[in-house]
Simulated assay, not measured.
Amino acid sequence: MSFFKKLGKLLGWAESAKPEVDLDTELYEQLRPFRFPLIAVVVMMLFGAIGYMITSDFSLIDGIYQAGMTFTTLGYTEVSDISVAGRFFTIFYVLLGFVVFTFSIGLIIEVLKKGELTRLIKEKNMLYKIARLKNHYVICYHNEFTQELAKQFKQTYTPFVVVSDLPDFEKIAEANKYPFYVKCPPHSDLAFLKTHLSSAKGIISLSQNSADNIAIIVSARLYEKDIKRISPYSIITIANSELDSERFKKLGANTVVLATKLAAQRLSVVSVRPDMENLLEQYLYTRDQSIDIEEVKVPDESWVRFRRLKDVSFRQIANVSVIGIKDVNNHFLPMPKGDAMIGTGAKLLLIGTPEDIKEVKKIIKNKQIPDILNIKV
């Protein structure tokens, strides 16, 4: 380890995050046509300097200076008296310089006109931004679901990257104000590298085509094994039928949302209780969240196991209520009473502020009973 790396580690300096895909080769390929203008400038300067040295007996420095003023058409003044041969050489040199300059400008304009160089520079800057993300979501495919989900994520400050292979996806992403986006086939390894999936929290596939969603699920699980990830990805997708939903779950999806079923449930609730229509939007889906609902699994070594709900006193500790308990057999007990027992592998459905739920999650993970509770072991 070098001295500067040791010093940086001692001072706690973090190394700049680098993308997992290097676009330098593609950039160099696009910059290749720029070599001719650069070489032409050097050759013209040397040609002019030598010409003035021969025709007008200039020194090397005076020749370079005179050639520079003539080639760039500045024309401040002559360094020294120029001979007749030198004046003829100047006329030829100006005309030749005009030809070289015109050809070089045309070459540069042609490269910029294609737009590939500009696109690569923008993509490289985007990849560096994405490389700094942690615990973000990768949203695959662009459609109306992606647009709405992106709005919700931006309101709740959830980091995300949208990846799609649509022809005009860059313009679509900018029109929808996606903060991070990548144009690439979503199920490919290249997409996983560009979206920095190795540091992501999960992946969301929103294609209307079941085959696309299957490809994302399988590819993500295989990639998870290839990088030897410790914690598995949270894979979320949508389905058009119950059959597709079951198939996706068997392949490795954690959550499958049926849009038609979800809409029907919402309509059912609204038709029975019209006053509840905007309740979730007011309390769960707003930017400044006042309450949150989260399912928390009780670890095997937690002190909470085999205790009654009234004994754990989450409401007393952090003002969080348990509104449901799911046992190891997935039997759900809604609105449990204080005598309800928390068994092995149980999942608690908690409601409270995000900060309070975060505090309760820490308490549940502890092996020891909190000092605030007077419970005998």
Rank of each mutant, 00 (worst) to 15 (best):
A14T: 10
S16H: 07
S16K: 15
V21K: 00
E26Q: 11
E29Y: 05
L31P: 03
I39T: 12
A40Y: 07
L46K: 04
A49E: 08
I50H: 00
I64E: 06
G68T: 13
G68A: 14
T70W: 04
F71N: 04
T72F: 14
T73G: 05
L74N: 14
L74M: 14
E78G: 01
D81Q: 11
G86A: 07
F89D: 07
T90G: 03
V94A: 11
F98G: 10
V100G: 01
F101E: 01
T102E: 05
I105F: 15
K114H: 14
R119I: 02
L127W: 00
Y128A: 01
H136N: 08
V138A: 05
E144L: 10
E148D: 05
K151S: 09
D165A: 11
I172V: 13
E174Q: 12
Y178V: 11
Y181S: 13
C184I: 02
S188K: 00
D189K: 06
T195Q: 06
H196F: 05
S198F: 02
I204A: 04
V218W: 04
S219A: 15
Y223C: 03
I230L: 11
P232W: 13
Y233L: 04
I235V: 10
S245Y: 01
E246V: 02
N254E: 10
A263R: 05
S268V: 01
V270F: 10
D275W: 13
E277W: 04
N278M: 13
L279C: 01
Y283P: 06
L284C: 04
Y285A: 07
T286I: 12
S290R: 10
E295G: 04
V296C: 12
V298K: 13
F306E: 15
L309H: 06
L309N: 03
I317N: 02
N330E: 15
F332V: 11
M335Q: 10
K337L: 12
K337R: 13
T344N: 09
A346K: 07
T353I: 00
P354T: 00
E355T: 05
V360D: 00
K361C: 14
K362V: 14
I364R: 08
K367Q: 13
N374R: 12
